[in-house]
Design a protein around this nucleic acid. Structure first.
Lengths: 116, 116
DNA sequence: CCCGTAGTACGGCGGTTATCGTACTAGGCG
DNA sequence: CGCCTAGTACGATAACCGCCGTACTACGGG
């Protein structure tokens, strides 16, 4: 399907551009207990180069396919960034985009989620 | 059905107590465009005694029954307070409860919603 | 080259949601 | 009392969501 010219193809994942991130979608993504748990966990892993967490590093009581689903919802809503590294996939929060777009929102949610 | 002993019965509406308000539920309530519109409108009407807005003062393109539904979701999630005043129903934000529970959350959402 | 690990695509199932129309109740006014 | 306005309760419907299992792909190591 794709023009794979090298043996190690870069598997890209679709992300919304910063301008495409919508508040309602972000809120919807954060409104699920499982995803909220994922987000709070990712927050402890950092966002820089070489940082982030794999899917299996997040401890949530759902099946693998459900986990994939939740990560996709978070990615497509613009909450997290995902890239492949070897056989695993690294996820991290998109603070660089979210904080300018919705100042204080992510921090307020994370802070509230931790105190529950 | 009810024991209406006086001609002017006080019609009470069920609200969750402050401790019963859950973050996920609040986020879910705010994740709908129509409800977000309602909330931003209510914010401009104030929260004090004698303040607040009636259902019909909110300009959203939905039917009356759908509007009732959205107001109920907001009330049952703890986002708004509702009381009857004569033939109409007054709604206002529950900042007094929300702000201590989730510091900065409502302001961040309202601020983000206004800049869209 | 084969296999294990990590993650995905797909289809299905059951519960929730947003929407509406219709029929109804509550309160105020003449 | 009769009527109007404001809001509600109910039922229907179509869409969506969270969850799962199964079958699959991608990469890296022995």
């Amino acid at each position: 399907m794709e023009d794979v010219t090298t043996t190690t193809a870069v598997r890209e994942l679709p992300h919304p551009a910063r301008e495409e991130i919508r508040l309602e979608t972000v809120l919807h993504a954060l409104a699920d207990p499982t995803r909220l748990r994922i987000v709070t966990t990712l927050d402890t892993f950092g966002e820089g180069e070489g940082l982030g967490a794999t899917c299996s590093q997040v401890d949530v009581p759902v099946s693998a396919s459900t986990l994939t689903h939740h990560f996709r919802v978070l990615r497509e809503s613009g909450v997290i960034n995902q890239c492949y590294r070897g056989t695993s996939k690294i996820s991290c929060l998109r603070r660089t985009d979210l904080d300018p777009l919705f100042p204080g929102l992510l921090d307020a949610v994370l802070n509230a989620a931790r105190n529950v």
